[in-house]
Design a protein around this nucleic acid. Structure first.
Lengths: 339, 339
DNA sequence: ACACTGAATGTAATCGATTACATTGGTGGT
DNA sequence: ACCACCAATGTAATCGATTACATTCAGTGT
């Protein structure tokens, strides 16, 4: 494995010049530059990145914290991050937290040890205070997360508003008994979506009753179980808004099992627009998050931080979209109620 | 940011001793060890990993090449790798190749520059010869890949045999016009699955006709399109074996669209057992690969290579499983034909 | 012709942990 | 009492690229 001094010797220059050819080519005379490049070629020289990283105290690597890599929502975002990172010469280190707080703490050690230049956290569980403290010392960006006091750049959608849209859509289809299966309440996103559901109900003079609300865990199974439960009550909902597509699909299968037809007897709206939403039967009406774009934007923001650029805007709320398919029954209706 | 010499000074020892406390605690007297640990604590010292990596020429990081991170098959495998890696103090660097050969080449540069200690390639596109050449110089392991001459450790299932099982299952349900939508033929896996399909047909005295075989791309869309096409022929298949669940679901939706009922008019078997296979309606009969386990095993093998242990067995063929659900119609049949 | 300027290049210190080799001091055997 | 040996610790070289500072030299102005 040839090193820089070998190149220098062969080219008849000093290591300083070789280094300059590599990093500041403009400060070197074309003729010497050529000699050096020739020597590099001849020796098939590759700079030792470990030495470079050590000397410059930077790694050109960023860390992405993912609650669960197998969840398509997160892997799509990671895809966006990865693309933007690669284009800017950064590499992406991945870490599955499995929703464990201790894994988030452990990842901060990586930052402290300078093993990565920065970090993007997807749906962090850490409390806001701790996050802010970390961000004072290290470049971090949050995605699919929301802060009360936006001191750290984050990328998200407006979960309250999008939830309102989803619920409103069901109400305008004539439903009055609209149920909601939420995500876990420790997550701000879940609380925001629940809030949006409540807002929509109240805005239309409806009372969001407790018996129509269930706390799920974003998973298929939790959607399935809660739907069975909801349909076993005396008064049964005619529509349901689930805070994730997985839960919505679970709910539909539960309804089917009980002979309740979707969308005829039960209108369903989900959230996420996972790939499978359009393949499912009935195809799922859902809120689409611009996942790839959110990943890209997060990386863009992190790059700014890494380059020491000022970030004027810390809140990055990207547009979401209600995608109307078959599960809500809108396609069978003549027209919607007015807003 | 305190360094080792600071700790040494505070503890009244040399840096060598501090280093020993950190890496070979047994060679240090308990009393000095205590002094050093006390100093480390007091200064809140964190070793500079960049310096350590540089000095030791190792990074405790491995690279995983993924054709597409958003594909659940691969993200499950990555999950398994990640888990095993974390348990052994290794970190996982991720790289999306998007099926681009040039990205595989670029990743080899990382190895050459010693930025990672080893690499796991998922479904590599690189030719066998090149792979073998690389593996002479660097620790690599392949997963969901198969080699003619197994000089590089790889983890896979027996795609030929599993395909035979899938096709046979349909034949034993009484089907004779069994179609196959394959994966792209540049992939050895696709060719193996096609081979298994052919074997099963021939073994049962059936002729695998060209008009019943289509080359897809593992995607929902390709399954959908090819099924439309297959059903528009004069002679129509009564069963289909698709080389991925995505294609199988595409096929089912295409059949539905043409009024062909699954499983009554068309039996369907898929491959992969993606999460949605069991949620789909009809639920999908499919071959389950032990994805998480394959990831784990790949990492185990790579760890052996990294530790310089000999790998006696390079071919690691894990057991797959035919999971019978609703899409093949087996549950409506009284009994199967004999083998 | 001489001093001055600045571009091009060289010299050598530096980053922080690791480790080969050197030194110290204590123990046991005779 | 002396030596041999071993365990514990220290000294200092080392990894390879980067870069502050030093040097060289060609060109310019007077």
């Amino acid at each position: 494995m040839p090193k820089m001094s070998d190149v220098a010797k062969l080219a008849g220059v000093s290591t300083a010049t070789v280094s300059r050819v590599l990093r500041n080519p403009d400060t070197v005379t074309p003729s010497t530059k050529e000699k050096v490049l020739e020597a590099i070629n001849q020796l098939n020289y590759q700079p030792n990145m470990l030495a470079r990283h050590f000397r410059r105290t930077e790694t050109n690597t960023i860390l992405v914290l993912v609650p669960n890599i197998s969840n398509t929502v997160f892997s799509e975002i990671v895809g966006g991050i990865e693309e933007e990172a690669a284009q800017n010469g950064y590499r992406v280190l991945l870490r599955n937290t499995n929703n464990q707080l201790e894994n988030e703490y452990a990842s901060i050690e990586h930052l402290k040890q300078r093993q990565v230049d920065g970090m993007i956290m997807l749906s962090p569980k850490l409390d806001e205070e701790t996050l802010i403290e970390i961000s004072h010392q290290y470049p971090i960006v949050l995605a699919t997360a929301h802060l009360e006091t936006p001191t750290i750049p984050f990328v998200s959608i407006d979960n309250v508003r999008s939830s309102e849209k989803a619920t409103e859509h069901l109400i305008r289809l004539g439903h009055r008994r609209v149920a909601h299966i939420s995500g876990p309440m420790y997550s701000l996103i879940s609380r925001n979506r629940y809030e949006g559901y409540q807002n929509a109900m109240k805005n239309h003079g409806l009372n969001p009753e407790d018996k129509f609300v269930r706390e799920g865990e974003f998973t298929y199974e939790s959607g399935y179980e809660h739907m069975l439960d909801l349909l076993s009550q005396k008064e049964v909902p005619t529509a349901i808004y689930a805070a994730s597509d997985d839960m919505a699909i679970g709910a539909i299968n539960a309804a089917n099992e009980l002979g309740v037809k979707v969308p005829e007897d039960l209108a369903v709206v989900g959230f996420d627009n996972i790939k499978f939403a359009s393949m499912f039967n009935p195809s799922l009406t859902t809120i689409a998050q611009p996942l790839h774009g959110m990943g890209q934007r997060s990386m863009e923001l992190l790059l700014k931080k890494l380059n020491g650029e000022a970030i004027s805007q810390t809140e990055h709320v990207l547009p979401d979209k209600l995608i109307i398919r078959d599960s809500c029954g809108a396609k069978h209706k003549e027209k919607l109620l007015p807003m």
